[in-house]
Design a protein around this nucleic acid. Structure first.
Lengths: 230, 230
DNA sequence: GACCCTACTGCCATAAATTGACAGCAGAAC
DNA sequence: GTTCTGCTGTCAATTTATGGCAGTAGGGTC
């Protein structure tokens, strides 16, 4: 790989990170020595890339730096289309429309050949089994998560009567057949998980959750050893 | 000036032109020989720049090398992230990287608040069951579908010995647990479906499929009553 | 057909750059 | 202090870039 392509690849690699990365791991992924990587970083900085490096931390590319190539590859188009199709097939109607609209917006900025690739993509998603229909209002649930609003639910535990609780929802996890709402439960004063097909009622309150969603998510991940690397 | 900075400058220079420019004048403005300019153009094209050159005319950079800023609704962001996460969790490593890179590229052209929405999104995908590992080279298979190349496979039917066939692959369908390659089978002279976990070998030939992929897909959909509305 | 203008490729000797290795300094967290 | 990292200098071997030249080819104009 020539140096000029490597520099562009390095930008793209840095774009995919949100937390600091060490130069050593970048060097390994680019297949060059650490010395060369330092030179590459210096070159990119000289060309205007806003790369922040600190001893003991690593590097972060501060957002807003546009540098070619900034177009999708065919494989990236495939990934986006396939993901959108899974969303359309396996979630709810609102999210399905959203996936559809997002693809349309992406298509609008694509050059002709890539738009054709997007439109004729032939990775398909099939739903063999029906999802449990349920009465859960997923759009409202997602909205509550986004806005950070407490909700009240009636939830039937595996071996118990339905109980009414006020919870702080912060994540919704999609399994093959079920979906699970992750929340802080005011009743139990602990993190709890609720299968959405066992919710009998759900009411979004107008009370704000007193903690940031990403903090709750981070703490839950830490205490429950959950990783999702995107 | 180093070559890598010159390549970026050349892109910028090309963007300022609307009518074709001759290589000679570009070379003069970049301060290099015409021979070097041709090499630079070739390098940029290899990196995905859509530069059109015709004898007697000159060069034009077709729009689309850089992505313009894009706006999505919060729900569209959620759909894209959720889809990308499903791809990352349930397909292969190459597609996982592609999904990751695509999101990073989208994030790069998003305004701050939407980028934050993308980065802190809390719709998660879980893989409860392991995918059948298999030995199928999915990246090569997707590439063959994209490029429209025939492939040779050894396929073990449900109740039979493995047979070697030459097929025209045109679609790959993702089910919860299996994946099925849809193709025209030269042996049976008909559409056939192949579970990828029953492929023992797969060789991509360098013979083009004599029909367009989208035509095959459309005909297969018609004859098999398959709908996928995205 | 002859004629331009241009894109594009192959070759080659020279010049320039890139590279990895090693040694060492510096800042920050523990 | 120790450890983790960023960062710089130097140098020899290697790789790459470069310009010049010759030649092919495509697409207009006359």
């Amino acid at each position: 790989m020539s140096r000029s392509t490597r520099l562009l690849d390095l930008i793209q690699l840095l774009r995919t990170y949100r937390r600091p990365v060490s130069g050593a791991s970048l060097a390994q992924r680019m297949g060059v020595s650490i010395r060369t990587l330092y030179r590459d970083i210096a070159t990119l900085q000289a060309q205007g890339a806003d790369i922040e490096g600190a001893p003991g931390f690593g590097y972060v590319l501060k957002p807003g730096f546009l540098m070619p190539p900034m177009m999708f590859s065919e494989e990236e188009i495939e990934a986006l289309v396939l993901g959108a199709r899974w969303v359309a097939a396996r979630t709810d109607d609102e999210l399905k429309d959203a996936a559809h609209n997002a693809l349309a917006k992406i298509a609008a900025v694509l050059p002709t050949d890539l738009r054709h690739e997007l439109e004729t993509n032939s990775l398909l998603v099939y739903n063999t089994r029906e999802l449990h229909p349920g009465t859960t209002d997923f759009p409202a649930m997602r909205e509550a998560i986004r806005q950070g609003m407490k909700i009240d639910i009636d939830y039937a535990d595996v071996n118990g009567q339905p109980t009414t609780r006020r919870i702080w929802p912060f994540a919704l996890a999609y399994f093959e057949e079920t979906r699970v709402l992750a929340a802080w439960c005011e009743l139990r004063n602990a993190f709890r998980h609720f299968r959405t097909d066992r919710l009998s009622t759900m009411t979004v309150t107008d009370i704000r959750i007193p903690r940031r969603r990403d903090r709750l998510l981070a703490e839950w991940r830490r205490t429950h050893n959950v990783t999702q690397d995107m």
